[in-house]
Amino acid sequence: MSIFERAAEAVSFLTQKLPHDFPRPRVAIVCGSGLGGLADTIQDEPRAEFDYATIPHFSQSTVAGHAGKLVFGLLGPIPAVLMLGRLHYYEGHAIDQVTFPVRVFKLLGVDTIVLTNAAGGLNPDYAVGDIVLLNDHLFMAGLAGAHPLRGPNAAEFGVRFPPLSDAYDLELRQHTHQAWKTVVALGTTRKLHEGVYAFVAGPSYETRAESRMLRMLGADVVGMSTVPELVVARHCGIRVLALSLVTNNVVLTPVPRGDEERLQGKGAGELSAILEAGKAGHEEVLQAGRAAAVDMQKLVVQALLNVFDHA
């Protein structure tokens, strides 16, 4: 069964379960780690939820902080579908399964997708809790062959060789900057940046040397999601807005040498503390996500209202 046929089967299941007059979504939002609170932006009525396990050909998320369901409803006046918990390559899913929901969104009628994620900050100007509007990426795994479009082209969705030089929609980014000034900037010390996202497969966090390499190549943030979904969205002709929440500052300083003078006479506990300074952890990611959730929600909602007001 082709990927188009599988996506069509999933869409058929969803549309049969939804009331016949339920609005078809125009926007899809993929909620990253700790950002599931975006579901609170959907109105209570009309509203429908589906666990991934019930949807044909959907894989299930296994990551803490990811609910694993689709939520359909209205975001203000905008018909939307939210993906609460994305699928990751590191969970063991094939990369075309990671991106399968995007195919489903296309066949549901979605023309704009918002991709959110938790990411480590490589740029020293970024602080924990800042939000980064993505304008480009480094897809190291894709360059090496772990690419969601590898194999026979799904011509029902798009062309064999889709360009990505225009991947991050400029108009959507304009509206997001305007939204930031309107609903967020005056009430927070949090900053909105624009930057480049580096995709790594995970699930281990990057070493210091790997982090310095990514920074030297031009990356501002690093994470384990978003880019495969973006590639497939652009293959399908879906406009993309992508946002990273900086949940930790990545350690860029080299590992201390074992013969450094400053280490002499220190015990095992002190040495461990030196080595572990700045080490990232998943709970830290979730905590930063919870703290920034309200600002991220305001920004996404207002940006989309701006976009559809001008449509």
Results as ranks from 00 to 15, higher is better:
Leu245Ile: 02
Pro79Glu: 10
His147Leu: 13
Tyr89Glu: 00
Ala185Arg: 02
Leu134Thr: 12
Ala144Phe: 04
Asn249Trp: 02
Val307Pro: 00
Ile238Asn: 03
Glu229Phe: 10
Gln302His: 14
Arg190Ser: 08
Val294Glu: 15
Val300Met: 05
Gln297Ile: 08
Cys236Arg: 06
Gly267Asn: 08
Tyr90Val: 11
Gly142Lys: 10
His177Gln: 14
Lys17Tyr: 02
Thr226Ser: 15
Ala185His: 01
Ala291Met: 06
Gly151Arg: 11
Gly237Val: 01
His93Met: 11
Asp21Phe: 04
Leu245Ser: 04
Ala80Met: 01
Gly65Ser: 11
Asn249Ser: 15
Ser12Asn: 13
Met296Cys: 15
Cys236Glu: 09
Ala233Glu: 09
Val285Asn: 02
Ser225His: 09
Thr176Lys: 08
Asp295Leu: 01
Leu214Cys: 12
Gln174Ile: 01
Ser59Cys: 08
Leu186His: 14
Ser204Glu: 12
Phe4Ile: 06
Glu5Val: 00
Asp111His: 13
Arg86Leu: 11
Ala167Glu: 07
Arg86Lys: 11
Val285Thr: 09
Ala219Trp: 00
Pro124Trp: 00
Ala311Trp: 05
Ala7Pro: 00
Phe157Arg: 03
Ala288Asp: 10
Val183His: 08
Ala119Asn: 09
Ile29Ser: 01
Glu210Thr: 14
Leu14His: 02
Gly120Ala: 07
Val102Thr: 05
Val231Thr: 11
Gly36Gln: 01
Arg86Asp: 12
His66Phe: 06
Val98Gly: 13
Glu229Val: 10
Pro46Val: 03
Arg190Glu: 07
Gly202Asn: 09
Gly223Asp: 07
Phe13Glu: 10
Ser244Thr: 12
Phe4Ser: 15
Val27Lys: 02
Arg208Thr: 02
Leu263Thr: 07
Gly32Cys: 05
Asn306Ser: 09
Glu5Met: 03
His57Val: 02
Gln264Ser: 11
Val200Cys: 15
Glu210Arg: 14
Val250Leu: 06
Val102Glu: 02
Pro25Phe: 00
Gln287Pro: 03
Tyr52Glu: 05
His66Arg: 08
Ile42Ser: 06
Ala8Ser: 13
Leu74Pro: 01
Thr116Gln: 09
Gly129Pro: 01
Leu108Gly: 03
Ile238Thr: 02
Arg86Val: 09
Arg190His: 07
Pro23Glu: 02
Ala10Gly: 13
Gln43Phe: 00
Thr253Tyr: 04
Thr62Asp: 10
Ala291Lys: 09
Asn153Phe: 06
Leu252Ile: 13
Arg290Asn: 14
Arg190Ile: 04
Val30Ile: 15
Gly32Trp: 04
Pro163Arg: 13
Ala185Leu: 00
Arg208His: 02
Val184Ser: 09
Gly129Leu: 00
Asp169Phe: 00
Gly158Glu: 05
Asp125Asn: 10
Pro152Trp: 05
Met83Glu: 08
Arg24Tyr: 04
Lys17Glu: 14
Ala288Cys: 09
Ala198Ser: 14
Phe157Ala: 03
Ser204Tyr: 07
Met224Pro: 06
Thr15Leu: 14
Arg212Asp: 07
Cys31Gln: 08
Gly145Glu: 13
Gln174Phe: 03
Ile113Cys: 12
Ala118Met: 03
Leu35Lys: 11
Leu214Gln: 12
Leu18Phe: 12
Gly34Met: 05
Arg212Glu: 10
Asp295Lys: 03
